[in-house]
Nucleic acid binder design. Structure first.
Length: 414
RNA sequence: GGACAGUUGGGUGAGUUGGCUGAAACCACAUCCCUGCUAAGGAUGCGUACUCGUAAGGGUACCGAGGGUUCGAAUCCCUCACUGUCCGCCA
């Protein structure tokens, strides 16, 4: 959630920042009015409550002293009745405010390039040159078929479309990648965690998936539980509603989880192959950082993900997302796009974001700075998306006969 | 899933004949004093959030969550969640 006091005091600045993310001024004006409205409603209600409390104290005193209380009782009853509508107004004001506030995305950093979609993203650098093939490189689904690596039909039979089954060496490679990623992250100082794959609604709200993106999530019927769309949710919310000590920061965490997404808005996109599935494996990095160190941690996370790709010998490019392509919670995001020779283009394989205090405010994650509590910064990034790495290996390490080499660093894991 | 017990501040733990308890005490922590040594003693401070105020200092809410009774609830009632123990079940 954005800082409403900041919005109130710096409306024009806040407004121009959020225009980068496509939020119109009208929404913000409404938000500002609702905030003011809530404050006024609360002030009235609290004044009445204060009155009620002090009269109740008197009441007790009168009783002990044996004084007549009929007059006081009448006053106190009248005040109590008068509070009913005030209570209702305050409740409505609060609901109205949060309904809007929870749906407003995070402010982008000033340094984020303007733009409306991925075409306006800015390439920062390329790492490793795509190698040239002496033959026409195939796409991963063709290679999968040739090697019997991916059983799309049976994935659909077992579940539904956009599910698949990895078989034989592909399944082993998937597992090898997970281990390789976790080991590498651990060596960089991330603590490895094994977390629940379902989280409750409060956690999903903490990281920003709820209430706005409920349609993207798989909900467990009859339970307050959702299948996680990313390990960012459980890892970040490890410290939901907690106050950390300053010396604990930064908290660096990594974990492997499957991720479940309805892909509601992507009908017709990437339907072939396993670029976009309802269930996919991912190893995630999450950092809970001091505001002063979050930029540094961010760079470290980007470098780590890039290093992993480089260690696998996978050519990629580093891209800064423009305002229009930024996710809901992100203040800044850098994507790593891996080269897919079969598709002849770069495809996203990692996304590293700094949400600043946006998630921390929702999830109430704070740290002690002296006597004060301050919101932490939370960061998250994939290191890496496992299925897409598998695809990238297939396409980049293919031979003319359709066989696939195993990258050197993975051999000890196979 | 069934039965019983519990859920209080960073921790341990009082408080359950409703008002003087936002909460004793102890520990931990912070600052200071004392002390020449890796110890001990003393003083003070020490929950969170919102809100009013330049400030000093007020106000409101929170004793697992939500609702109810009452002038007034940590204390009474209801629902739910969680924890513990016993039983059932199970990787």
């Amino acid at each position: 959630m954005i800082d409403l006091k900041y919005l109130q005091n710096n409306f024009n600045e806040a407004s121009s920042k959020l225009q980068k993310k496509g939020v119109d001024t009208g929404t913000l004006e409404k938000l500002q009015a609702l905030f003011q409205n809530l404050k006024e409603a609360n002030a009235k209600l609290e004044a009445a409550k204060a009155e009620q409390n002090s009269m109740s104290k008197l009441f007790g005193q009168y009783m002990r002293e044996g004084k007549d209380i009929t007059e006081l009782k009448a006053k106190v009853d009248a005040n109590k009745e008068a509070m009913v509508p005030l209570q209702e107004q305050a409740r409505e004001a609060e609901e109205a405010l949060y309904r809007v506030a929870l749906a407003v995305p995070n402010f982008p950093e000033d340094s984020v390039p303007a733009g409306t979609d991925e075409d306006d993203n800015v390439e920062l650098r390329k790492v490793l040159e795509p190698k040239s093939f002496t033959f026409e490189p195939k796409e991963h689904w063709a290679l999968a078929e040739k090697n019997g690596w991916i059983d799309f039909e049976r994935g659909v039979k077992l579940a539904k479309s956009r599910f698949s089954v990895l078989r034989g060496d592909a399944a082993r490679l998937e597992r090898a990648l997970i281990n390789f990623f976790l080991d590498t992250n651990r060596e960089k100082g991330f603590e490895e965690l094994c977390v629940p794959f379902m989280n409750n609604a409060q956690m999903l709200q903490g990281t920003g998936q709820l209430p706005k993106f409920e349609d993207d999530l798989f909900k467990i019927e009859g339970e307050d539980l959702y299948l996680i769309p990313t390990a960012e949710v459980p890892l970040t919310n490890m410290y939901n509603d907690e106050i950390l000590s300053e010396k604990e920061l930064p908290v660096l965490m990594t974990g492997y989880t499957p991720c479940f997404r309805k892909e509601a808005g992507s009908a017709g996109r990437d339907t072939r192959g396993m670029i976009r599935q309802h269930q996919f494996d991912k190893v995630e990095m999450v950092a809970i950082a001091h505001p002063d160190q979050s930029d540094e941690v961010f760079e470290m996370m980007v470098q780590n993900a890039s290093d992993i790709l480089a260690a696998l010998g996978l050519p990629h490019r580093v891209v800064e997302l423009c305002g229009g392509d930024l996710g809901f919670s992100a203040a800044r995001t850098i994507d790593l796009e891996v080269w897919l020779p079969g598709q002849n283009k770069y495809r996203e394989i990692s996304s590293i974001s700094n949400t600043r205090d946006f998630q921390a405010r929702r999830a109430k994650i704070r740290f002690k700075e002296g006597k004060k509590n301050r919101l932490v910064h939370t960061l998250n990034g994939s290191a890496l998306a496992v299925g897409r790495t598998l695809i990238a290996i297939m396409e980049n390490y293919q031979n003319e006969d359709g066989s696939i080499e195993i990258p050197e660093v993975l051999k000890k894991y196979m």
